[in-house]
Structures are given as structure tokens and as C-alpha cells.
């Protein structure tokens, strides 16, 4: 980007943003952590879409993944464990002009923040919500999360997790007013990027579950799938996530029309294979942010209106 501080006269539209314009602090995740790949894909998206850094807000909760905003040079809000979505809702209701991204971990989104997750889907406010799902509590050192596979040993359930994992896709797809649900994996960068791009372009609340490796605590969980693309099934459709460069490597493909909710739910329910792609998209869902757009009112108008209000109560 050409520094606007140097050339303050430059019109906004003439600024051009390069990767460096979005880079924040040096990422401090463990080497090999999947969060690095997500950051790379997001930066690529920011450049590709030429999002103005000052018009872009990344909101996160607490967890390894929630350190995300620090590593970008946009506005960021690193808030409370589980509570990224309410903050993002407040930002977007008050400032619909901003581009809002939300980064959450699986404990963040699916456990402590589950109430907000369900309601954010229903509000369907225009923003991109990324679930960085490593199936474990990373930051607090290997406790069972709602998405931990049954039998997987953790520090709080050392003899293996007791229950079958919660399925974030069926939960999301089962919620009233859902408008965009996709799944991708951070070790398939082309798919990750294409998915985030589709999510960004969707008009409404885009929910993206990103399967994420945590070499520290769930080493090996996705090793087989990383090595063998045959374990993955790509959902393909002209209206879906389009990444032609993957055609040669990922030969397991299922055509799925993302407007078909029943089929999306069936595909999400079936846990025999890992499916990546766009499960559902519907831009005609009710959008709370559009329904709640108040008029612009000047201060003189406000005072006149309030005087009318006071007239009702006048003695």
C-alpha cells in the first residue's frame, strides 16, 4: 500500500494493499500449528478482496486460535472466552459499514459460547465466522472439548472422552434461519482459501468450520487424512466452493447443490468420511442487521423529537 500518511491527498480508492499492509505481530503459535495456515489464507483473502485495513475488524474469544487478530494489522477485538459473537454483533449493528470476521476455537464456539453460536446463526448478520476446530482445548493444555472424538484421551478424561463428539455442522444446519455452512481443512490451502472467499462474499452469516491440526495435543488426529486425499470427499457444485486445482488430487467427489438443505443435513450427519465443501447457502434468509437499520438522525432532529416526547408527559 502507498502510505496514506505520506500521501494524504490520495483518494481511498487509489490505495492498493499488499500482504505487508495486513501483517501484524509475528504469530506465536506452535510450529506446525494449523492456525498458521488459516492466517495465511485470510491474509491472501484480504489482499485479493482489497479490504481496507481500517474498515476491517477481527473479533475473537480466548484460546490459541483467538490470538488471531493480534497477527493482523486491521482493527481487532480479542475479548472473552466464548463471547466473540456478541461483540461482533454489537460492532455490526452499530457499524454496518465495517467488514467483520470472527475467529473462535471449538471450546469457545461450541461449549462456553454455544448459546451465542445458535443465536448468531439465527440473527444471520452479515459476517464471516470461522471455527478453528482442533477438537481440543489448546491454550489450557489438552482438555476434552465438545468436538473431541469419543475415546480420545485428554487431561480431564484420561481414560478417553466419554461421549460422541458434537457435530458443529448438523447443529448449524439444524438452526432456524441458517444461511451459509461450509467445512474446510487448513491443510488443503486452496480449498481453505476458496471457502473463505465464498464465505466473505455471502450476504449473511457465514459459518465455516475449519478442521485444524494441533501438533501439540492432537498429534496424528488428521495424519491419515493429510497423507491420503482418498479419505476426503469434496462436495462440488458450480455454486459451491470452486477450486479446480484440487481436481487431480482429490478424486472423491460428490456433487451437492448447496441450496438443498435436506441433502446438506444428510451429508453432514454421515460421519463415515470427512467432507469438505459448501453444505448450504441461502441468501434469501431474514437478516437481522438489515431489519434493524435505523434512520440517520441529526442532533437538531433528535432534540425536536425528544421535545415531542416530553410534550406527552408535560404537566
Amino acid at each position: 500500500m502507498t502510505q496514506c500518511a505520506i500521501l494524504p491527498m490520495l483518494d481511498d480508492d487509489e490505495r492498493e494493499f499488499a500482504l505487508g499492509d495486513y501483517e501484524g505481530a509475528v504469530a506465536r503459535w506452535c510450529p506446525g500449528c494449523g492456525d498458521h495456515s488459516v492466517l495465511t489464507a485470510v491474509e491472501k483473502l484480504l489482499v485479493a478482496e482489497q479490504l481496507k485495513p481500517e474498515q476491517t475488524v477481527f473479533v475473537s474469544g480466548i484460546g490459541c486460535s483467538s490470538r488471531f487478530p493480534h497477527y493482523l494489522k486491521t482493527y481487532g477485538f480479542h475479548g472473552l472466552h466464548g463471547r466473540a459473537l456478541p461483540v461482533a454483533t454489537g460492532v455490526k449493528l452499530h457499524r454496518p459499514d465495517l467488514d467483520v470476521f470472527v475467529v473462535m476455537g471449538d471450546g469457545d464456539c461450541c461449549s462456553i459460547g454455544a448459546a451465542h453460536w445458535i443465536h448468531a446463526i439465527r440473527y444471520n448478520i452479515h459476517m464471516v465466522a470461522m471455527l478453528l476446530d482442533n477438537s481440543i482445548y489448546g491454550l489450557t493444555k489438552k482438555q476434552t472439548s465438545p468436538t473431541t472424538p469419543q475415546g480420545f484421551k485428554t487431561n480431564t478424561q484420561p481414560f478417553g472422552s466419554f461421549l460422541p463428539p458434537l457435530n458443529p455442522l448438523t447443529t448449524t444446519l439444524g438452526t432456524t434461519n441458517v444461511s451459509f455452512v461450509a467445512q474446510t481443512a487448513e491443510w488443503v490451502p486452496a480449498h481453505l482459501y476458496a471457502t473463505l472467499r465464498a464465505a466473505y462474499r455471502h450476504q449473511g452469516f457465514s459459518f465455516v468450520r475449519i478442521l485444524q491440526r494441533c501438533p501439540m495435543y492432537t498429534q496424528g488426529m488428521y495424519e491419515a487424512a493429510v497423507r491420503d486425499p482418498g479419505m476426503i470427499e469434496l462436495l462440488v457444485h458450480d455454486d459451491g466452493v470452486v477450486a479446480p486445482e484440487l481436481d487431480k488430487i482429490y478424486r472423491n467427489r460428490a456433487t451437492h447443490d448447496p441450496s438443498d438443505l435436506d441433502s446438506a443435513r444428510r451429508l453432514a450427519e454421515d460421519s463415515t468420511r470427512i467432507r469438505l465443501g459448501l453444505f448450504y447457502r441461502n441468501e434469501s434468509r431474514a437478516r437481522y442487521d438489515l431489519l434493524r437499520k435505523p434512520p440517520k438522525v441529526t442532533s437538531s432532529e433528535r432534540i425536536a423529537l425528544l421535545n415531542q416526547e416530553l410534550d406527552h408527559y408535560a404537566v
Binding site: V57, V59, F77, G79, L80, R83, L85, P86, V87, A88, T89, G90, V91, K92, L93, H94, R95, L98, A115, H116, I118, H119, R292, P294, P295, K296, V297, R302, L305, L306, E309
Partner: peptide, 29 residues
């Protein structure tokens, strides 16, 4: 009356969300 004044009254899903939404709004303006 609030919307006439350019305001939004948001009934959140719980009190935690309510204060979170207020903080998000304040933070951004």
C-alpha cells in the same frame, strides 16, 4: 420510540450477550 431517534434496542439471547453487544457497539463508535 428508539428507532425514530436512530437507535437500536436489541433484545439479546441473555445478559452476557447483551453487555457483549453493548461493548462491541461502544468499541466501534
Amino acid at each position: 420510540v428508539f428507532s425514530k431517534f436512530g437507535g437500536i434496542l436489541h433484545q439479546a439471547e441473555d445478559e452476557i450477550a447483551a453487555v457483549g453487544v453493548a461493548i462491541g457497539a461502544s468499541y466501534s463508535g
